[in-house]
Amino acid sequence: MDDDAEKTYTWETEYERTWEAIQEDEQGSLQAAIDEIGQKNRRKRMRERKSNIRLGMMRHLFLIVDLSKAMEEKDLRPSRLVCTTKLVENFIYEYFDQNPISQIGIIVTRNSRAEKLTDLGGNPKHHISALQDSLKCQGEPSLQNSLELAYQSLKHMPNHASREILVLMASLTTCDPGNIMVTCQTLSARSMQCSIIGLAAEVYLCKKVCKETKGQYHVVIDEGHYKDVLMQHVTPPPALADAEASLIRMGFPHHKEDAMASYSMSQTGTDQAELSTKGYLCPQCKAKYQELPVECRLCRLTLVSAPHLARSYHHLFPLPVFAEKQIDQPSCCAACEQSLERLTMVYECPDCSQMFCMSCDTYIHETLHTCPTCLNLTNQ
């Protein structure tokens, strides 16, 4: 390793008294300082987000969860398993909220094997329920078996869609039947991206896998950092340069209620069906489904609603970062109307020049994805 790389180690740099930067407020609370640090980190990620790039809007993601004995460690509160379960639940709901025309599947690895809990699908409740019913930690994980299992499902997905694998790895070891680098070359050849989030320490093999497949590798510091790096995968990744650009056939079914009950197609890839009077009829083959979006199991037509496409719009044209500034006189937030004292840090919209507090700036960029005052002016 060269000298430049060695100089980047934390223990070789000057000791920093980071706790001195956190100040109590008038009530003796540290929450304001913590919120400010979190806001600065979020704004840094927003500034680093690249614009004018082509994104993979239709995503097929397999989430691989390590359920080995290492997941029972308690360095994350209250344990790695409980912390991971809660964050995965939030991640799945946020994933479908931000990527309504995408799909996700779950694979768990334990006892040196890989098990597919759910196939690729768009029902978040089904994925969360399947994961909660399988929270038993045993033996060692197998990263290669998990990647091979994910590959077998993703290789059938169309090339114009983004095919991703996200691994939550608690163990420092993996029990594989063969050379995992051969599996990495297979994934790379099919333009499948593998990212890994480590819960313990940096592992060279994991870092190598991510580098070979053009994925991201993170090692979490604490629960807050775990949530941040996991939520980074909610945003669609940049599309590959050699990805196909093709038209996608979609159907927009209407919700229909009949007097007599009929069978609805299963959206989970099983043969189970249920009787119901309500549902969405595929405009091409008339198959009925209870929820959207879904790929019709008979004619393979992608069934979505207009709001699903509209909610994907903000990824293509992200809201610009609001400018930070200090006000010279008391004012109020343009959204929540909270009073803003003199010399308070506020955030100004570059289009309408309205000022917002820190909480509203976070809500606008992470949830609304549009400036409310700009939208109001447009409607008028």
Rank of each mutant, 00 (worst) to 15 (best):
S112K: 12
M265K: 05
F252D: 13
N90M: 02
Q185S: 15
R311A: 15
L166S: 01
M260C: 06
M181V: 08
P283M: 04
N145D: 10
V294G: 04
R77T: 15
R77I: 07
L309G: 09
E223H: 09
L301C: 04
R43D: 09
R311S: 14
I53K: 00
D258H: 11
E274T: 05
L61A: 10
G251A: 03
A189H: 00
E14F: 01
Y363K: 11
K69E: 15
A239D: 04
L230Y: 02
M192G: 15
K7D: 06
D25N: 10
P283V: 01
D222T: 01
T8Q: 12
L377K: 10
S68K: 07
C184T: 13
H126V: 03
T84W: 00
S264I: 06
Y263T: 05
M46D: 14
R47Y: 11
H225D: 13
T10V: 01
V167K: 11
K69A: 14
L187S: 07
L301S: 05
I180V: 09
L143Q: 08
H225M: 00
M231T: 06
H156N: 14
S262H: 11
R54W: 02
H369Q: 07
E341S: 12
D271F: 04
I180Q: 09
H156P: 08
S191G: 12
T183I: 07
K125R: 03
Q380S: 08
E295M: 08
E244N: 09
F96K: 04
F62V: 13
L117D: 09
L166R: 06
Y263N: 12
C336P: 12
G215R: 00
S79H: 03
Q338S: 12
D75A: 02
S51C: 11
N41P: 00
P78T: 01
D228W: 00
T362E: 13
P283I: 01
E341M: 07
I221S: 13
E324W: 03
A189W: 00
M250E: 10
P330S: 03
S262W: 06
P238E: 15
F96D: 14
A201G: 06
K227R: 13
P177H: 13
I107D: 10
G139P: 07
R297N: 15
L303P: 04
Y280I: 05
K69C: 10
M250F: 08
K69M: 11
F252M: 14
D222C: 05
E89H: 07
R77M: 14
L30W: 08
P293C: 06
A200L: 06
C194T: 15
Q193N: 13
H233C: 09
C282N: 07
V88Q: 09
S146V: 04
E16R: 08
V82A: 13
Y363F: 03
V294S: 06
C175Y: 08
A161P: 04
H60K: 11
D351A: 11
I221A: 15
P283Y: 02
S312C: 11
I22A: 09
K44T: 13
Y289I: 04
E274I: 04
L63P: 09
A241W: 00
S339E: 14
V108T: 07
A200W: 02
A323D: 14
K207M: 07
E274D: 12
S339A: 12
